[in-house]
Write a protein that binds this DNA or RNA. Structure first.
Lengths: 257, 257
DNA sequence: TCAAAAGTGTTCTTATTACACCCATGG
DNA sequence: CCATGGGTGTAATAAGAACACTTTTGA
């Protein structure tokens, strides 16, 4: 005795293979239709770092549902579009950010998460240097803005859950890999990078130990330039050595100071 | 100028909110339908450990598509079913494994990955003690069997990609958390656990250092029992201390011997 | 000359590595 | 009595933690 669901598996929508002889093709298609009435979306968590605070990029929704709320930039995926491509396309549509490499985090699929019907969403995240990009809200996003993760507005759908998950995985990742450098400007001071890691990991490090460890990793290059215009001793500016970083990725590291 | 896609966002399938005055409700629903013709599935990677080898549970497909191939136990998700629930339900339907806690790994969404139409799949994984469960293929699974990850049959869909991804994340996870104990019988020897980690991490450890580190974690309890019937010195049997494990989870650990 | 942040070294403690022989059992 | 895998300790090295004062600049 097969359930409808099991019968479905005997059926190819496109090939119309007739396996269960007692069913007509049209009745099989009826069963299949019960499943093929879902949609999926991508939701992007874009992290930035500014003023010593970890930030996330949100858009102001100019469309239903949840029109007039700040939300993660996300939208439905076309049926003929790969997920990873969709994540990039949606981000560009809504915020103008082009060619941002996005990495998948997790999928969220509660039955009632979307008022349109059954929509599961695949969450992606990216890290960008806020200084290097202009944010231009477009499409149905009326505005796009950085929010400190400490001062978030009320978010629609399950976006808060997604964001909390994203922050948690970013934190875990940052502890194991020299990730996060992507958030800093091209040239940066050691103090900046310490504050960055303190913000990400929500911890406080000893300056001497932090510098010792960081420099011993041999990932940074002294640019021989100095910070200017600060009412205190100027800090040395470093840059990130991409080549050395590649090697490092494999061996792994740990930021358990 | 809005694209159809953008218009869609102005539309609630259920609420029928009429935002764009120039469109009739029925034409909006037409647009919406373009998106709501997808389905999603779950695919489960169930790991076991036996005879010194890491194993994965596969089913023999008795249904199209790919009838007659060994595949990951997976199936379409009902429209009114949460993802996590679906993963457990599908596993039980196909293999008889009840109440197995499954954790989400990743979603796979290439456009052509399923011959029925657009189906994205959410991969889950679980670790089980092979000795404690009976595998009973049912529904459209004609058979269910453990395969060593070193001797896999050809897999349908993108199941190989999913499996490779699952093994990789399991490996990374095992290095950071005392995971994998779930794969051993209730009472186990230190040699067994060493072999397990060697299989997972594909590495060779020094017996003395491995034991020292493992015992210093204070996760194991000596049962004071001994292995029997082996033609050599009997090994002490240990069990896993769930309580101490809980604490440990937070502090984290590393298996970089 | 003061405020503000940058920069720097040493000691102590803890974890990791490398390494070789005796022990208990079944056949 | 022998083959087989179980079981053990120590020394050397490397990594992490704790800790306080001097330096350079702009205002």
């Amino acid at each position: 005795m097969l359930t409808n669901h099991q019968k479905l598996a005997n059926l190819s929508y496109f090939c119309e293979i007739n396996i269960d002889e007692t069913m007509t093709i049209s009745s099989k298609q009826e069963i299949l239709k019960d499943f093929f009435h879902a949609a999926f979306s991508v939701d992007n968590v874009v992290f930035g770092f500014d003023e010593g605070d970890l930030k996330v990029l949100l858009i102001y929704r100019g469309a239903e549902p949840f029109k007039g709320m700040w939300a993660l930039p996300g939208d439905l995926v076309y049926l003929d579009e790969d997920l990873d491509v969709a994540a990039q396309r949606v981000l560009q549509d809504l915020t103008g950010l082009k060619n941002i490499f996005m990495e998948q985090i997790h999928s969220f699929g509660k039955v009632d998460r979307h008022p349109f019907g059954r929509v599961i969403t695949v969450a992606y995240y990216a890290l960008i240097k806020t200084q290097d990009y202009n944010i231009n809200a477009s499409s149905w996003a009326e505005e796009a803005k950085w929010f400190s993760i400490k001062e978030l507005p009320t978010l629609p759908f399950d976006h808060l859950e997604i964001l909390v998950y994203a922050i948690k995985s970013f934190k875990e990742k940052a502890r194991r890999q020299p990730i996060g450098f992507e958030l800093l400007p091209k040239n940066f001071t050691l103090t900046q990078i310490q504050h960055l890691f303190e913000a990400i990991l929500d911890a406080k490090f000893d300056t001497r130990n932090f510098r010792k460890k960081l420099l011993s990793m041999d990932l940074l290059v002294d640019t021989k330039k100095l910070e200017k215009g600060k009412a205190h001793r100027p800090a040395a500016l470093y840059k990130f050595d991409q080549r050395k970083f590649q090697k490092f990725q494999k061996s792994g590291f740990s930021f358990d100071l």
